[in-house]
Each structure stands twice: as structure tokens, then as C-alpha cells.
Write a protein that binds this DNA or RNA. Structure first.
Length: 554
DNA sequence: CATAGGTCAT
């Protein structure tokens, strides 16, 4: 039988994903002594990979006397497809160490994909003392094409380097790669979502329209998510409403968006609508739904959904589902039932699980349980400043000042530093960043006098500063002064001075909003009759008319 | 021979 016949059969087999045929062809090939003649082994490698027979592929690969770029690309891709990114990366250095080959644009795409599934695009995939990251490898590529750009940009977004991804996207356009495919665009929309940069997101949206990808399903899904994450839930609903076609991702995105913005009833009614039009919810949908319930204390509805997920849809709850469910129970004061769930669930509780319980203990004034949970958290994550702050808040809530001081000492002894807080606000196309305590801003005098006026009016309306959120050891007056300069207040003051009157003021903060600022923002929203939306490290706060969408529970 | 999208908790 001629080689071309085998080639054809193998390609057919790769398309049809029939592992047994792949093995049979391989056996026949060995008999004909053709099996090590290029390009047959490469095609066989590819076929094995596509049929999910990664071990057979590796065996063949090891036997091959001559391996070229194609062999390497095929074996690395086979490992990615078998969901073994670690093996992809540990094999890869042998490409130059043993075979003396430099990565080409095919190999690059596979390696970057492996890095991004591990969330480590910028950390160095290379072993044996080779200092390098995906950027350097990219620079050295003899050929860069759309695949290389897309792989790197998507990988950066997935590993949390959204800013790098955005710059790279701009560079890609400048380099003349104008054939932008929807894949890279969806990654870029995702980067805007993660960074919560609404203005840039809008620009990318207009690019999507210009390129004619508006009706592409997964781009629309990404846009819905982006607008929701950038705190513009109305725009998210608008896109969703105008979609011609909606899948489970579209519905889940808008349900989660509504839930995160405190619109639990809306989330639940969207779910009914979704089921009515025949879309089956998946495990992610239920996370969003239980989360929605926990925000408005719909305990029995949440329990029903948790049951329905298992009984009607055969989805067995993950640790995330349990954590969400626990959050629902403990927020609504069912701390005993929550403990039972922790004891009986088939998972070891992780940090988020304990954190959900801790937040509830704080809210319901169960200091004893709170301290136990916080100690547990501290042993799990001794390097995370937020745990110390939670513990300190538990003590402060119970007015146990000596213990507050002890936590502070412990932080100092372990050299755990509180991350500096900052808040961003977009005015037109310009983004302003404010750090806590910042006093060098050109408009600081106007901002200061506005904040002072607001402070006076707030106090007339009954505001009492709550300085228990200030961790440092200082005089009472000094503590109040600290609060006064928290970054979100600076950003709000700037927004009130500079933004178009009547528009929503949108702020993105890197840390959680402190309890005192939360109170202040509620007051400000009613005094100036403006809506303020703050996206903090964990959720959205929509302040309007003196109230917040989070129901004061966060 | 290759690149892709959504969720909770902190």
C-alpha cells in the first residue's frame, strides 16, 4: 500500500476521532516499514492526539529518529488536548536542548495555550535555568501570524494581565495585522471586563460593530458580561435584549450580572424565562441563582434551587455551590444549619467557604464562632492581609480593642502589609486614580471643601463616623481624618466636580469598601441626588437615594 | 501541526 493511502486514511481518522482505527493503521504501517518515513509519523502523532491517545502519541514520538517542528507542534498539542498542560511545558525545553530546534509559530501557540491554562503566561514556562517568558519567545518568532498574536493576547487575559493584553492588541493593529478574528476580540472584551474599564470597553464595542461581529454569539456574550462587570447593567441588558440567538452562556451572564448588581428578583425571573424558552441551565447558572437568593434572603427559594439542580438537572454540587449555599444560610442567620452543611458536604472547606461563614458571623454578632473561623482562615492563608483585617473587624465589632491591637501586632511581626487602597474613575476618556490619603492632586482644595460640606450635611442627618475600620493605633480624631481621605471618597468628590451633571458616577476600587465609606456613600447619594456605583474587590454597590443594592451585607 | 467566551467567596 502506498504512503499516500495511509496519509489519507490517517487524516480521515483524525477527523472522525476513531482511536481503534488509528491503532490499526499504525500496526499496518509498522509492517510496511513506512512508519518512520516523514511525513507519516507526524500525521500519526496528530491523529493519536486528536483521538485522545496521548500515551500512544508519546511512545511514537520517543521512537522517532527524526523530529521536526511539525512533530513537536503535534505532540505538544496532543498534551494540551488531553488537558495535560504541565506535560506540555515540561517536554518543551527538549525541543532545543535535545533536538536543537527553535520554536516556530505553531509550537508557540501550543506552549502559550499550556501556559494560560495554568495561568502563568508571564512566569516562565522554561526550566533548566532558562530565564524567559512568553513575551521574549514571541519576539524571537521568525513568523508571527494571527494565531501567535491571538494565543498570546488570550493567554495574557486568562492569566490576569489584561493591561499587557490591551497594549499588545494595540500593537497588533499597528503592525498591520488587520484581519482581526472574533476570537481575539472576545479576549479583548474580556480584558475590559476584568479591568472594569467601561470607556475602553465601549470603544472595543464600536470596533466590534465596525468589523461586523455584532451578531457573533460569543462576542455578544462577552459584551453582556463586560457591561455588567463595568457596572453598566443597563447596557448589558440592552445587548442581551437585542441578541437574535441566546445560549446558556448568554442567559447565565445576564442572570449573574443582575444578581451581582443586587437585582435578585430580576435574576430569578430571567431564569424562569430561560427555562420557558427551553434553555437548560448549567452548573454556573446555579451558582448565580443561589448567589441571587442569598442577597435578598430567599432561603427556601435557594434551597429549592439547590435541590432542583441535583434532581431536575443531574448536576452534583461542587464546592462553589456549597459555598454559595452556605453563604445563603449564614447570611440569613441559619448559622447552625450552615455548620451542619459544612460537616456533611463531601469537600474539605477552602478559604472562600470559611470566609463566607466569617462574614456572616460578623454580621450576626456571633463573635465566638467568628474568632474560631478567622483563626482557621489565618492558618490557611497567613500571608493574606485581608484575613487579618476581617479578624480585626470581628474583634472591633465586639469592641474587643485589646484583641484588635493584638491582630495588628501579629501583622507587624509577620510583616504582612495592608495593600494600598486606590479608586479609579473615568471622566470622558481620561482615567483618574486616587490613593488613600493622597494630597497632591491639582484639584485637592475643591475636593476637600466639597467633602467638608458633605460631611457637615451628613452629620446633620445623623452620620457618626465609625473608625473601628481603621487598623492603625492612633488618636480618635486622627482615625476620623484617615477615613475622610479614603480613596473612594476622593474619587466621588472628583466625579461630582467633573462628571456631566446627572450622570451615574462609576468607581472601581481595588480593595473592599470599608463600612464607614459605605455609610458615607449612601448619605452622599441622597444629598446630591446622584447614583454612585462602586465596584470593589468583591462586588458591586449601587448607591441610590440613601440605599445600597447590597442591602448592607458584603 | 495552532489561537477562543460566562459564575461564587476574600
Amino acid at each position: 500500500m502506498p504512503a499516500s493511502h495511509f496519509l489519507h486514511q490517517l487524516q480521515l481518522c483524525a477527523r472522525r476521532r476513531t482511536p481503534s482505527t488509528a491503532k490499526r493503521l499504525h500496526a499496518q504501517l509498522i509492517k510496511t516499514a513506512l512508519h518512520l518515513c516523514v511525513p507519516l509519523p507526524n500525521t500519526l502523532l496528530d491523529t493519536y492526539g486528536k483521538c485522545g491517545l496521548v500515551e500512544d502519541a508519546l511512545h511514537l514520538f520517543d521512537e522517532m529518529p527524526h523530529r521536526d517542528h511539525v512533530s513537536w507542534a503535534s505532540i505538544l498539542t496532543a498534551h494540551n488536548q488531553a488537558n495535560m498542560p504541565h506535560r506540555t511545558l515540561s517536554m518543551f525545553p527538549a525541543m532545543f536542548e535535545s533536538d536543537g530546534l527553535q520554536p516556530d509559530h505553531f509550537v508557540f501557540a501550543s506552549v502559550v495555550k499550556a501556559c494560560s491554562s495554568l495561568g502563568a503566561v508571564r512566569q516562565g514556562y522554561a526550566r533548566s535555568g532558562r530565564k524567559s517568558d512568553a513575551f521574549e519567545m514571541f519576539e524571537r518568532l521568525p513568523v508571527k501570524n494571527l494565531f501567535s498574536w491571538t494565543a498570546l493576547i488570550s493567554g495574557l487575559v486568562q492569566s490576569g494581565h489584561g493591561v499587557d493584553a490591551l497594549y499588545l492588541f494595540i500593537e497588533m493593529r499597528r503592525e498591520g495585522v488587520h484581519i482581526v478574528d472574533p476570537l481575539v476580540l472576545s479576549s479583548i472584551v474580556g480584558a475590559c471586563a476584568n479591568l472594569a474599564v467601561l470607556e475602553l470597553g465601549k470603544q472595543v464595542h464600536s470596533l466590534v460593530i465596525r468589523l461586523g461581529y455584532e451578531s457573533c454569539l460569543f462576542i455578544s456574550n462577552a459584551l453582556v458580561d463586560m457591561y455588567a462587570k463595568c457596572s453598566d447593567i443597563l447596557a448589558a441588558k440592552d445587548i442581551f435584549g437585542r441578541m437574535h440567538q441566546r445560549d446558556v452562556v448568554s442567559w447565565t451572564s445576564i442572570i449573574v450580572g443582575a444578581a451581582q448588581h443586587g437585582q435578585a428578583e430580576k435574576a430569578l425571573s430571567l431564569y424562569d424565562e430561560m427555562v420557558a424558552v427551553g434553555i437548560k441551565p448549567n452548573e454556573v447558572t446555579f451558582v448565580g441563582l443561589i448567589y441571587a437568593c442569598s442577597h435578598v434572603g430567599l432561603v427556601s427559594k435557594g434551597r429549592a434551587l439547590f435541590r432542583s439542580m441535583m434532581e431536575d438537572y443531574g448536576i452534583s454540587p461542587s464546592l462553589q455551590h456549597y459555598t454559595c449555599f452556605l453563604d445563603l444560610l449564614s447570611r440569613s442567620g441559619h448559622l447552625g444549619e450552615a455548620s451542619n452543611v459544612i460537616d456533611s458536604m463531601p469537600f474539605e472547606p477552602d478559604e472562600p467557604t470559611w470566609a463566607a461563614l466569617l462574614s456572616a458571623c460578623k454580621h450576626h454578632g456571633d463573635t465566638q464562632t467568628g474568632i474560631r473561623v478567622a483563626d482557621h482562615l489565618l492558618s490557611l492563608k497567613p500571608e493574606d492581609p485581608s484575613t487579618y483585617i476581617l479578624l480585626s473587624n470581628v474583634y472591633a465589632g465586639a469592641r474587643m480593642w485589646e484583641n484588635v491591637a493584638e491582630v495588628r501586632k501579629l501583622m507587624a511581626a509577620r510583616e504582612v502589609k495592608k495593600k494600598p487602597g486606590y479608586s479609579c474613575i473615568d471622566i470622558g476618556k481620561e482615567t483618574q486614580v486616587f490613593y488613600a490619603g493622597e494630597t497632591s492632586h491639582p484639584m485637592k482644595d475643591e475636593m476637600f471643601s466639597l467633602l467638608k460640606d458633605l460631611d457637615a450635611e451628613m452629620r446633620r442627618r445623623g452620620y457618626v463616623p465609625d473608625s473601628s475600620f481603621v487598623l492603625h493605633d492612633m488618636e480618635h480624631q486622627e482615625k476620623e481624618r484617615q477615613l475622610f481621605w479614603h480613596s473612594e471618597r476622593l474619587a466621588v468628590a472628583y466625579g461630582l466636580l467633573k462628571a456631566v451633571p446627572g450622570t451615574v458616577i462609576r468607581i472601581v476600587k481595588n480593595l473592599r469598601v470599608c463600612g464607614d465609606c459605605h455609610t458615607v456613600l449612601k448619605f452622599i447619594s441622597s444629598i446630591v441626588k446622584r447614583d454612585i456605583v462602586v465596584r470593589d474587590a468583591t462586588r458591586y454597590h449601587h448607591f441610590s437615594n440613601g440605599e445600597c443594592s447590597c442591602n448592607d451585607f458584603w
